[in-house]
Write a protein that binds this DNA or RNA. Structure first.
Lengths: 241, 241
DNA sequence: CGAGCGATTGATCGCCATCAAAGTGGGTGG
DNA sequence: CCACCCACTTTGATGGCGATCAATCGCTCG
């Protein structure tokens, strides 16, 4: 009996690798029933990307769409003279490649080692045609991304350096709470340079702001890539809006 | 015969006020056939909003969605201490109210006198369910807005005051070319204060930049609310990206 | 014609960028 | 396992862009 179970489980896994997927409920695939999920899974494939490597470049033809299953991705754009702006970070469960344009407007790079589900665009669009519930989900994701982008507009246009850094930390905190369990430690996978380019600041300013928050006993720097929020209410008051 | 024609035309108009709508082809309704268009029209009503008045406020429940048929709308957000950021301007043909959240994240105000087609949300959503082609169009609009928002992120995060102002003027120029005919005069319906709050600058800086561009013979200020681009290639070079 | 608001122009200030240098930690090879 | 190396980070000194404060201009409307 025990051996029978052991025999069956791998088979189920093989047919439905998504069963073990921890981000499924948060991702695009979350709404699919078992049957359609299997069909959808067949249209795609898994990909690994090393830390620092690009998934696609600004200007590349948009050939595939992706779901991030593990790791962190940054979406960035370079100006002619090398100034860089990061438009957003993607975490496990997030959808990548949402565009109707033929070419990507942003470069997508792996901040950490990244695992992706990759779906060729034509097959993805065919699947969408056959599954309107998924199209709706995609619209919902787009609406959320739009809301996030507009929040960033407010942050970049009207907040001070301190407010920007604090808002960023709180944002990462919410993200942790949504995915993992409410832990005091916040994972900070990106470098100071990434944070600076996301917040429209320079590395030195980000570093100074973090040091200053530490001195005020509002945060603890528990490692180069992890942080602890010590007084969330006061932090929230600083971040405003 | 002539009288017969005169009798019929108003009837057609009454059934299809959209016939005369100059922005239909650019707007959400653009994809609808004559029949569905009539049905859709029936779910909505026309509204006028005086210059300076709000269409809805940040925090208001989202009860309706709109299509702008004439005038200019601004989407803005206030921080606790009164700092304001404008997330975008809407022009004739643009869709307003795209959100899945129950409450609006931004305030929408009429910059000029505005005409709107107003659709109550429940009826709008029912119509969407029955017309997947319109849902797809809506997704396409959301994707475009997302692209625009991310462009603004780059502008706010990494461009200088001069680059911001020039980018803004070119953006308005493209918008004019898309809707009206290519005219040398660009309409600038908003105040300097609106421009400043859109670009993350102060009024004085916007004014100084415009004066400086005028002194460089790159633009002509033909009136408080109209401008002429004299050397678009050079302006484009300044705006970068 | 005068009131008042928006825009322009000028003078000065301050936040964040820039330039510079020292500190730190992770990874690699001996 | 340790030592070195290199890239990232932190901290310090200075500077500049855009904000702020202030005054004048000019258009619009009563």
């Amino acid at each position: 009996m025990a051996t029978a179970l052991i025999d069956i489980l791998p088979t189920l896994e093989a047919e439905h690798p998504c069963f073990g997927c921890v981000v499924r409920q948060f991702s695009l695939c979350g709404i699919l029933e078992s049957g359609p999920l299997r069909d959808f899974r067949r249209t795609g494939s898994n990909t690994s990307v090393a830390a620092g490597s690009a998934i696609f470049f600004e200007g590349d033809e948009s050939e595939s769409v992706f779901t991030v299953t593990s790791g962190t991705v940054r979406l960035s754009k370079l100006l002619a003279d090398g100034r860089r702006q990061i438009a957003g970070f993607l975490f496990p469960g997030d959808f990548l490649g949402l565009t109707l344009a033929e070419v990507h407007a942003f470069t997508a790079e792996a901040v950490t080692p990244v695992e992706l589900c990759r779906f060729p665009r034509p097959r993805f669009e065919t699947f969408l045609d056959e599954h309107p519930e998924m199209e709706r989900r995609l619209f919902s994701l787009a609406a959320h991304e739009l809301a996030a982008a507009r929040q960033q507009v407010v942050l970049l246009g009207r907040k001070t350096a301190t407010e920007k850094v604090v808002s960023f930390l709180l944002m990462l905190g919410s993200r942790c709470r949504k995915l993992g369990i409410a832990q005091p430690e916040i994972d900070l996978p990106m470098t100071r340079s990434d944070i600076a380019d996301y917040l429209g600041l320079r590395i030195e300013t980000v570093s100074r702001e973090l040091s200053s928050l530490k001195a005020s006993r509002l945060i603890r720097l528990t490692g180069m890539h992890s942080i602890q929020l010590l007084d969330e209410p006061r932090l929230r008051a600083i971040a405003e809006a």
